[in-house]
């Protein structure tokens, strides 16, 4: 199942709507990294609220997205990780180090807005 990517102002918002296969996640990664350049986006939000499992492959690929997107000049925020999913992830040692996580889409947007604003002050 393909993940829809919405372009909203300077941001790309990918909302995962159901369980993803490995191939779906890879496709999402490639699409995001490509579109960040095409739309000259400043930020990427990946909403994982619908994911009931985030294993090493999903976590690793999303971390890759964040790193690649950063190399392309934008910031990634992962939002909506469920409590039980977070609990399982930390047990596995999957802590998404260096990746910003926020409660939900609203918080993710808030984070990006403030970061971009503070960058403008510099």
């Amino acid at each position: 199942m393909q993940v829809p990517i919405l372009k909203q102002g300077p941001y790309l918002i990918a909302t995962i709507q159901s369980a993803l296969t490995d191939a779906d996640i890879v496709q999402l990664r490639d699409a995001l990294v490509e579109q960040v350049g095409r739309y000259r986006s400043r930020g990427v939000i990946i909403d994982v609220t619908a994911l009931d499992v985030m294993d090493s492959f999903a976590t690793g690929t999303l971390r890759d997205v964040a790193h690649m997107v950063r190399l392309r000049g934008a910031e990634t925020v992962i939002v909506g990780i469920q409590p039980d999913v977070a609990f399982a992830m930390v047990h596995m040692g999957l802590t998404l180090e260096g990746v910003t996580t926020r409660l939900d889409l609203e918080e993710g947007l808030d984070h990006l807005n403030r970061n971009i604003k503070s960058a403008a002050y510099r």
């Binding site: 490995d22 009931d52 499992v53 985030m54 294993d55 492959f57 039980d84 999913v85 609990f87 399982a88």
Partner: peptide
């Protein structure tokens, strides 16, 4: 439910 998620995650890893 928390434990069910741990189990589902373990199965995901084993299957992969």
């Amino acid at each position: 439910p928390t434990d069910a998620t741990l189990i589902a995650t373990a199965i995901s890893e084993l299957a992969r």
